[in-house]
């Protein structure tokens, strides 16, 4: 049984349907990636899993237990944590306050001092800037805070929504290195990316979304070799 299962998920923004029967699985300890171009429904999928957007239909299970319909803060308490698109930091709180608030939930709070130390080890630059307001950081640093804040919750599954978006190549390398490390030591990873090439390099499994539907799914290696993916997403 997969750790996280999404079955026949249907979701709407108001009256506009955004997801049609989306199904995929995330195996424990793996990196699963959800690919697709602008507007494909990747963010909508993650927001539905997080409980921000209640699904119209379908099931979401964590370790076999239904989590669809559960409010967002309870989903965090169950260990499903999201690092949102665009980072969504609190700009007028300090770096450290942003991180510590990441441990607001039931899982993170008792461990917060220890997790904070390990986040500063993972991102030494954040330790130097701990008292700076998050809004004054560079884009790369803000992304590190966002990932660090997600880790503070002690996730079982960490969902990252386009963590490399808008970053300089050297920082993209850094982000992908960190994702590998997270998957190896801390949490199962569900990665949403438009950087298809890099995502397929580190992922175990991949699903491709188009217009709110899963059009392709399988082991990352196989997806990377798919002729359609190569022309549509990899520019080969």
């Amino acid at each position: 049984m997969a750790l996280l299962e999404v079955r026949q998920l249907t979701a709407f923004h108001g009256d506009v349907q955004a997801l049609w029967d989306v199904s995929f699985e995330v195996a424990e300890g793996s990196i699963t990636t959800l690919l697709g171009s602008n507007g494909a429904g990747k963010t909508t999928t993650l927001r539905t899993i997080s409980g921000i957007l209640p699904p119209r239909d379908g099931e979401i299970r964590l370790g076999g237990e239904r989590i669809d319909g559960v409010p967002p803060h309870r989903i965090v308490d169950m260990g499903v944590v999201q690092v949102p698109e665009g980072r969504k930091l609190w700009p007028n709180l300090s770096v450290q306050e942003n991180l510590v608030l990441g441990a607001y939930g039931r899982r993170g709070r008792p461990e917060r001092a220890r997790t904070l130390r390990s986040v500063y080890e993972l991102f030494p630059r954040l330790a130097e800037r701990r008292s700076q307001l998050a809004g004054t950081l560079s884009g790369g640093e803000q992304q590190m805070v966002a990932i660090g804040r997600g880790l503070m919750a002690r996730p079982v599954v960490l969902m990252l929504d386009e963590p490399s978006l808008g970053l300089a190549p050297i920082l993209v390398d850094e982000v992908f290195r960190v994702i590998r490390e997270i998957a190896a030591q801390r949490a199962t990873v569900l990665l949403v990316e438009q950087n298809v090439h890099r995502a397929l390099q580190i992922a175990d499994t991949a699903s491709v979304l188009e217009n709110g539907r899963v059009v392709l799914a399988g082991p990352a290696k196989q997806i990377a070799g798919d002729a359609k993916v190569q022309t549509a997403y990899l520019g080969l």
């Binding site: 967002p72 965090v76 949102p84 969504k88 007028n92 608030l101």
Partner: peptide, 15 residues
Amino acid sequence: RALAQDREACALVGV
């Protein structure tokens, strides 16, 4: 204080 700045981010950390 965080709620005043970004509500959805609060929900995502378990508030």
